[in-house]
């Protein structure tokens, strides 16, 4: 089997961490590198979290530190959601390996240059690193198969009424990425708010008994509690970032539509909105596969199966 080569660009973050576990547990996927970015927490903390997760999993791939700030705006972080460390809850080992000397943009560029096959970028944080990659090395777009990202929403938001957090953190970067000409799969709130993990699901994961399943359960303990206290209407926790990875392996679990998506960068109320042309008002060509639904029970079964593969 030819594995799908991916680069994870993330800001762990509980759901980023589960996305990493899922990718690592999946024999269909080859992780070529992991890069950090500021978002859920500062880049110092998200980088440390990447190192800790990879150390825990025994996953040895190059890691580089990404951008500490959005392109043009001040950083917004989400300690309310992910705690002061960005990954509050589980006890993780201290990093067992160093990060690369170079920046995230340089590491992604190096991996793309050296790869014989086209690579899929999987950003699950703000799109700052990816936008800067396209500005500095536009020729490397040819080495990218597509982007499968968590961010945005055809309708609604989670940080403002109109904006999802990852896009809101760096709307101009998102603008550059959505205008890049590359195919994008957008795992936005439309689908991630349906990818709900309940307390019962968490117990099921814990009972699998593997190390990876145990870590996933501990991460979800924290994440489900946060959502029960703040967003009880979900009946559990949306598992945002894992959707961007799951779609690569099991697209059959998802329903999607092809639409044109543009980013509002100027608005006062709608800054960071992923304006999705659902009814084709614009004559713009679709640039995005927008995920709109997921078979929740099968998604949970799939996660359980994968968590059982890793020890």
């Amino acid at each position: 089997m030819r594995k799908i080569p991916i680069i994870l660009d993330c800001d762990p973050g509980h759901d980023d961490a589960i996305a990493i576990i899922l990718a690592h547990a999946s024999p269909e996927i080859e992780i070529l590198g992991v890069t950090s970015v500021a978002g859920n927490q500062t880049v110092e903390k998200t980088t440390l979290n990447v190192q800790k997760i990879l150390t825990f999993l025994g996953l040895q791939v190059p890691v580089a530190k990404g951008c500490p700030k959005p392109l043009f705006r001040e950083l917004i972080i989400a300690p309310e959601v992910h705690g002061v460390t960005g990954l509050d809850g589980p006890d993780l080992p201290e990093p067992g390996f160093p990060i690369e000397d170079c920046s995230a943009v340089e590491l992604i560029a190096r991996i793309l240059r050296e790869s014989e096959r086209k690579v899929i970028l999987v950003p699950t944080g703000a799109l700052t690193n990816i936008a800067l990659l396209f500005i500095a090395y536009p020729e490397l777009k040819d080495k990218i198969e597509r982007i499968s990202l968590m961010g945005g929403a055809a309708e609604g938001g989670n940080w403002t009424p109109t904006a999802e957090f990852n896009i809101l953190v760096d709307p101009e970067a998102a603008d550059i990425v959505f205008k890049s000409g590359l195919l994008i799969t957008m795992a936005g709130l439309d689908v991630t708010h349906k990818a709900i993990i309940t307390r019962e699901d968490t117990e099921r994961f814990r009972n699998i008994g593997t190390k990876a399943a145990g870590l996933a359960a501990e991460l979800l303990d924290f994440f489900v509690t946060f959502h029960e206290e703040n967003f009880p209407q979900f009946g559990g926790s949306p598992l945002h970032d894992a959707c961007a990875v799951a779609w690569l392996i099991r697209p059959d679990l998802f329903t999607s539509v092809h639409k044109h998506v543009a980013i509002d960068t100027g608005g006062e109320l709608a800054a960071g909105c992923t304006v999705t042309d659902m009814r084709a008002f614009l004559s713009a060509k679709p640039n995005t596969e927008v995920l709109i639904d997921v078979k929740r029970q099968e998604f949970v079964d799939f996660l359980a199966e994968r968590f059982s593969l890793l020890d």
Partner: peptide, 12 residues
């Protein structure tokens, strides 16, 4: 100042 800004943005 594009090159200099890229260096600042990508390298803390």
């Amino acid at each position: 100042l594009t090159n200099i800004a890229l260096a600042i943005l990508t390298n803390p």
